[in-house]
Design a protein around this nucleic acid. Sequence first.
DNA 1: GATTGACGCCGAG
DNA 2: CTCGGCGTCAATC
Length: 191
Amino acid sequence: MNKRNDLVIISIHKTNKLYFAAAFSQKGKIVRIALPKTNLEDLITEISNYHPKFIINNMHEKIVAIIAEIYHGNKSNFDIELLEMDIPNKSSHVTSTLKTNFERDVILEVASIPQGHVRTYKEIATSVKTQGYRAVGTAIGKNPFPIVVPCHRVIRSDGKIGGFRGGKQMKIEMLINEGFKIKSDKILLEK
DNA sequence: GATTGACGCCGAG
DNA sequence: CTCGGCGTCAATC
């Protein structure tokens, strides 16, 4: 289990204009994925907020490159085993990747949404057997593995796009990359 | 306890 | 269609 104070390895991959990055534990598991940015510094800053102790080494660049492919809608599957899904002990108050069983249940459910499909927050809530729709939204909002765990494919029950940590525009862009059509903040289901 | 959410539903304009 | 208001529940203060 990787904790806040543990050393992580950050690998970076650049596409046309965007920098992608992910943080890996010593065991080689992904502990954090950053949303792409046009500025490399911002990207590192974001990850360092969660993992102050890091080194930059591109030994894992191939994996980050795959994440970039998924972002652009060019690849659909990813080995979930690469993600650090462990939950910390009750006593350790450090910031780790996932904190509670509830969060993990939600993340695993979202991870099962195939490329080119969407589900609603309500449907995810039903799958994890709760009526706390907002709580589900909050858990998804903290998704440590964006892109790979496709939280951008979770939309509101009324068809509207809903929120996104990297801004709604990025969510829309990713959905368009996967072939969806969007009109006035609503998704058109026939694609 | 009280407050805060990447939500859902219904009813009023 | 847009709002407000309330339901609901997990995390955080």
